[in-house]
Design a protein around this nucleic acid. Sequence first.
DNA 1: CTATAGTGTTGACTTAAGTCAATTATGCCG
DNA 2: CGGCATAATTGACTTAAGTCAACACTATAG
Lengths: 248, 248
Amino acid sequence: MGVERVAFSMKDQPVPTDCCSCPIRDRAVCALCDGEELSKLDAIKSYKTYAPGQEIVGAGEPWPYVASVVTGVVKLSKTLSDGRRQMVGLLFASDFLGRAANRPDTCDAIAATETTLCRFRREPFEALMKKTPHLEQRLLQITQDELDAARAQMLLLGRKTAKERVASFLLTLLRRSAPAAFTGQARIATIPLSRDDISDYLGLTIETVSRRMTELKKEGLIELVDARTFRVLDLQALEDAAQENYSE
Amino acid sequence: MGVERVAFSMKDQPVPTDCCSCPIRDRAVCALCDGEELSKLDAIKSYKTYAPGQEIVGAGEPWPYVASVVTGVVKLSKTLSDGRRQMVGLLFASDFLGRAANRPDTCDAIAATETTLCRFRREPFEALMKKTPHLEQRLLQITQDELDAARAQMLLLGRKTAKERVASFLLTLLRRSAPAAFTGQARIATIPLSRDDISDYLGLTIETVSRRMTELKKEGLIELVDARTFRVLDLQALEDAAQENYSE
DNA sequence: CTATAGTGTTGACTTAAGTCAATTATGCCG
DNA sequence: CGGCATAATTGACTTAAGTCAACACTATAG
């Protein structure tokens, strides 16, 4: 019931967030901006909240914005003409959505959970970027981080087994959606995606995701509190299962 | 013999290229720079040529440079602890190598063919970037293009069949290493990678690459002049086979 | 307290790609 | 020119993941 109430209020109010109290102020595209720069951004921004499953922008469609994810999770996916889908990005709070250049993005962006974006109108944003090195510097960092993540995912998609992919995915969630839990004792996180979405993300089928998840559970590496919540029982073993020991 | 002579001279001379006659002047990281900016870059640059198979920088190693590829092809790959390898990037002339931020790259970079880099010392390059918006703007564009390419490759690795991957790869070569051939009648290109490298790139095995290549040949879509050279006989059919009809 | 629809899990079987092994080019160097 | 090493192809068989189908949760509505 508490959850319902929060969801309700987020959906109906236009999110009265100002930059000072913004939860992503220190990591978003505006992270390096000073007060003056921030007020220029403020003039071209608007918040918008999307329901789970709601399309933010379709592949190839023009979109007159770029945006930061304030809360929620956004899926970026590509689709082949016969319907095969592959998620090519998963955006969490502070991640950036939309190309600065006017080239249309060939992915569609869909809200996975209820999501609030801080949108900037594209044209003035691009103009502002030319005059504001802080903005461009930060966007470059963010884009390079995205590229690193994309390359890690290429290794996963090209070479990891189904079990390794599922284990890697759970570790990603722990790191990205519950950073505190990763080092702390809790090691519990919610899964913001359906099994269908997870299979799109991992290049697998629903059935295989389900089977390998059950396997990790039976082996005692994780516990499934419910279908959308997991707890890590043996972090070291999960990292081993994911082939994410960077200890060569 | 002509080829040998050229290779010889490239290997032994320090490549007396100046920016004015540089073949990648209009597309590399320096593309937007004016004469003054170019001369500042000139002060911190050096050319270096690598032999095929030579390591440029290993995963995790520090490298005091960033660089543009002037000629040749560079492989970026990741390796799991048990030896499984996945190529996560293939750099052609004008592509950029190295992160501007000091974060160590977790890929190794290896010259696929004889390759000449235009290297900039990292520290002064970064300092220069802060004072030269042109440089940062262009690097952002390049990084975004890399990200687009990485995402297209994620679709390939996650969802395409072996045959589709091979067809896509040949089309990529046609576009990137012989742009003229793509629109013109020639439609012939050399494959700058061994079968082993191709399988690393496509997330397949050598044997599967070989079999699907033979299949495309038997179906009359391509002709293999030799193992490293192919000609496209039916471009439309090859694009269909690659699932690269963007004609929704 | 059932129905019902959606989501997730499990089982039986198929298949595309991987593995292992043999064979055939392709160079390369004396 | 011929033998040797490497690279590429082809063949026979195995396996991990996909497919199709049944079943089991969960949650909301009547």
